[in-house]
Write a protein that binds this DNA or RNA. Sequence first.
DNA 1: GTCTATAAGACGATAGAC
DNA 2: GTCTATCGTCTTATAGAC
Lengths: 183, 183
Amino acid sequence: MGTKSQIIEIATALFQEKGYNGVGLNEIINACKISKGALYHHFPNGKEELLIACLGSLNEVITKDIEEIFDQYPTIKEAMKAMIEKLIAKFETEGTITSYTFSSIVSEMGSLSEAVRIACSNLYTKIEGIYSNKLQSDGLSEESANSIAVTMTAAIEGGILLCLTNKTSEPLKMISQVLLRLV
Amino acid sequence: MGTKSQIIEIATALFQEKGYNGVGLNEIINACKISKGALYHHFPNGKEELLIACLGSLNEVITKDIEEIFDQYPTIKEAMKAMIEKLIAKFETEGTITSYTFSSIVSEMGSLSEAVRIACSNLYTKIEGIYSNKLQSDGLSEESANSIAVTMTAAIEGGILLCLTNKTSEPLKMISQVLLRLV
DNA sequence: GTCTATAAGACGATAGAC
DNA sequence: GTCTATCGTCTTATAGAC
């Protein structure tokens, strides 16, 4: 079923870029070239159901994407370096970053439901898990690996915000250097 | 001039918590117990003018607050530790963090104006500057201090997002430990 | 400087035809 | 499964009285 997954794909990018409240259903159906009726056929409970579907899809995409990079490189140092470089390259060509971030949705959580919070929490947990596993296979203790994994997740999410705000990829470049010094 | 500054104060907290698009003018005037006419008297250009006033006010408040903490402690290590502990204490008593974060506004920037982006950029630059100065007075080179300052800014902003998402202060506690190891 | 009343439009959501 | 038409609500913003 192409339509439903196409809606999810397009809506995900819009939500990441502008936030949940920053995107209207009209904007989504225009971008997808479908009608309001079609949208509500696939998501009978409306906009928030669509958002949660987007977060679920994002979970799969991000996990697959990051795991692929992490399988390519033997140590966390190399894998992390490659991952952030990919992020920077995308930012420099496209002018925006949507890849591994959903801070736009998280930061509006004060006006969203508990189901959304849990979906976001699952996503962060999954990302942290990938980092932590690689750190442990590099020889770190579980406790130490978890702390660094959380810091990496936070620094990258924050770094993306800084890049978008300053319209330059410098913050992520600096952060990459500093994070690599941690391991 | 009580009214105008009161509007700014209340609106700032709401914007930080729910994002720019997550807060309506009606919510703001109800919280301030004023009328729509009064709001537009003080901010003739409407909601975005109010937002920019809020970011300017936030600039003063955050700077003063962080500088006060940083003046109290001789090294960045102690100052940063105290700052994050203050953040955690506030989160644990109030259940939310609005203090030194405006990611909610930044992350909606895709749907906001250039003037807003610049106001946010100024804020991040100012915070980074405080960290960097302290790092340099601790003996680090300018280049090294700047990299670490940016990483600290990003990690704290990201850490706040993780705390709000997971409804626990653990992420900031872990991040504090790791960041302090950097200096 | 603050108020009420109102405008014009966008919002999310629904009904019913095809 | 997709469409159009519509509903009620909420949005930002304005006008004009006091």
